[in-house]
Design a binder for these strands. Structure first.
Length: 332
DNA sequence: TTAGGGTTAG
């Protein structure tokens, strides 16, 4: 009650708008904000940031900018880190960072980059998000530029930033360079180890993987929080399957089931893929039944792998049956 | 706590 006495109409309106946004009812939040404005409730920067977030979540980054220019700047509000972070997320969601940062700067993209230069209190989250997008678009030169910019602004890269870089290097098979990222300034965590394990598996260096996994497992729960998780197990199983070590993968998988480890739809799908690649389609179909029996629901990816394998092996009837099953489950 | 936060697996 006391809270209600001390709040203002705009704060109450923002709470309602944010509730709709949290429930992913973005169009409702947008139309409500228009109606509130028509009723004379002047939007605050918080209102406009919520609106930008709604547009970005709907993939309508241009409308996000239409809030920035005529509403934020014309009201002489100062866009803050939340405004910018939200817009950057919108760009990353739309996959437009590549276009934004390859000197094809037009309209919205130009406005975003200009804004980046103006904001003094930009942070590691912002830069990490951009660096991640750049890595995924293989724009490594721009990554270096952004890292240099972080240094100039005395923003310390976090473990998230380093993990993005480690993973990008690992995915290119550059294990040595990835390891060189781990310095006294960077305390690796299990995400770092998972990226390294994935790389080691893909390079066929399984014995090193076992050493690293034993090191993680034996360390229990040390201060840096490194321990085996479902990501590690899935990366390992996938690496074994793809490295022609299906029997070992099956043994590890069975062991995980017996010991009651937490496994998920990825784990089963990896095993199904491994079995399919070896032409063991009956075993793969049995695995599908097993996962459902264990309460793990297959997704579109799981079905896709099985259906492709069945079509390739002339199992058209079974493939069509699974296709119908997919449709019935609303996965197509 | 009226708004935004980043990394790893099929």
């Amino acid at each position: 009650m006391l809270c209600l006495i001390h709040t203002t109409p705009i704060v109450e309106s923002n709470k309602i708008l944010d509730s709709f946004a949290k429930m992913m009812q973005y169009p409702t939040a947008v139309s409500l904000s228009h109606r509130l404005e028509l009723k004379g409730i002047v939007p605050s920067l918080v209102t406009l940031n919520i609106l930008i977030n709604c547009f970005c979540r709907m993939g309508q980054i241009t409308f996000g900018f239409s809030v920035l220019r005529p509403k934020i700047l014309k009201r002489s509000y100062e866009p803050d880190t939340i405004t910018l972070n939200t817009l950057i997320k919108g760009f990353c969601l739309k996959g437009r960072v590549k276009k934004a940062l390859t000197r094809i700067l037009t309209g919205d993209t130009r406005a975003l980059v200009q804004l980046l230069g103006k904001i003094d209190d930009s942070n590691a989250v912002m830069y990490s998000r951009i660096i991640d997008c750049l890595c995924k678009h293989k724009l490594l030169k721009e990554v270096t530029n952004f890292l240099n910019e972080m240094v100039l602004k005395t923003i310390n890269p976090s473990v998230y930033t380093y993990n993005i870089l480690v993973d990008a290097l690992c995915k290119k098979g550059k294990l040595k360079e990835a390891k060189s990222m781990i310095t006294k300034n960077m305390v690796p965590n299990m995400v770092t180890c998972n990226s390294l394990i994935d790389c080691l598996c893909k390079l066929g260096r399984i014995s090193y993987v076992w050493d690293l996994i034993h090191e993680m497992h034996d360390s229990g729960k040390p201060a840096n929080g490194i321990r085996l998780d479902v990501y590690t197990l899935n990366i390992l199983l996938d690496g074994l399957c793809k490295g022609k070590r299906l029997k070992i993968a099956q043994g590890v998988f069975q062991d995980l089931l017996v010991k009651g480890y937490c496994i998920n739809v990825y784990t089963y799908t990896i095993m199904i893929n491994g079995l399919c690649k070896q032409g063991l389609l009956d075993e793969a179909l049995a695995m599908l039944s097993k996962m459902e029996g264990n309460g793990c629901i297959p997704n579109a990816f799981t079905f896709e792998i099985l259906i492709c394998a069945l079509f390739e092996k002339d199992g058209n009837d079974k493939a069509e049956k699974l296709l119908r099953e997919m449709i019935a489950r609303g996965l197509l």
